[in-house]
Simulated assay, not measured.
Amino acid sequence: MGAAPSSTPPAVGAHAGSTTAATGRPRSRLSRHATRMEARGLIRRAPDPADGRGCFLVLTEMGLDTLRQAAPTHVASVRRHFVDQLDPQELTVLSRVAAKLAGEPEDLL
């Protein structure tokens, strides 16, 4: 079932360490959440050949199917509760701010 580890990240996954940094949550909280998702068959952990201490969190087929099923409802909710509340000028400003923030965090300092 598992493929041999490669030196590149999985196509549909993220390194656990970068996920912790991106969410701003403690590593222990991410680990517990990943364990629950793994038990539900949504993700699997794959070793990181470049860093024996870390791992990749990889979506399984079931996880990808679940994500695909949830996406339309999520997108509709974001549109209804956020995007539709803004006028065209506000959306333009938001777009500019988002583009500026999309850079590396060091660029913001």
Rank of each mutant, 00 (worst) to 15 (best):
residue 2 G to F: 10
residue 3 A to L: 05
residue 4 A to V: 14
residue 4 A to C: 11
residue 6 S to N: 11
residue 6 S to K: 13
residue 7 S to L: 14
residue 10 P to D: 02
residue 16 A to I: 12
residue 17 G to F: 05
residue 18 S to G: 14
residue 22 A to P: 13
residue 22 A to V: 02
residue 23 T to A: 08
residue 24 G to L: 02
residue 24 G to R: 06
residue 25 R to Y: 13
residue 27 R to S: 09
residue 27 R to T: 11
residue 27 R to P: 12
residue 28 S to K: 06
residue 28 S to W: 04
residue 30 L to G: 08
residue 31 S to D: 15
residue 31 S to V: 11
residue 32 R to P: 06
residue 33 H to F: 07
residue 37 M to N: 09
residue 37 M to F: 10
residue 41 G to E: 06
residue 43 I to K: 04
residue 45 R to N: 10
residue 45 R to G: 15
residue 46 A to D: 14
residue 47 P to E: 08
residue 47 P to I: 01
residue 50 A to I: 00
residue 51 D to F: 07
residue 52 G to P: 11
residue 53 R to C: 00
residue 53 R to I: 00
residue 54 G to R: 10
residue 56 F to Q: 02
residue 58 V to D: 09
residue 58 V to R: 01
residue 60 T to D: 01
residue 61 E to K: 07
residue 61 E to F: 05
residue 62 M to P: 15
residue 62 M to Q: 14
residue 63 G to C: 09
residue 65 D to L: 02
residue 67 L to R: 04
residue 69 Q to N: 12
residue 69 Q to I: 08
residue 70 A to C: 07
residue 76 A to K: 13
residue 76 A to F: 07
residue 77 S to C: 03
residue 77 S to G: 04
residue 79 R to A: 07
residue 79 R to Y: 13
residue 81 H to I: 00
residue 82 F to T: 05
residue 82 F to N: 03
residue 84 D to F: 10
residue 85 Q to S: 01
residue 88 P to T: 02
residue 88 P to H: 00
residue 91 L to N: 06
residue 93 V to Q: 08
residue 94 L to R: 01
residue 96 R to L: 12
residue 97 V to C: 08
residue 97 V to M: 02
residue 99 A to N: 06
residue 99 A to F: 05
residue 101 L to T: 02
residue 102 A to S: 14
residue 102 A to D: 14
residue 103 G to F: 02
residue 104 E to D: 09
residue 105 P to L: 00
residue 105 P to M: 00
residue 106 E to G: 03
residue 107 D to M: 08
residue 108 L to I: 11
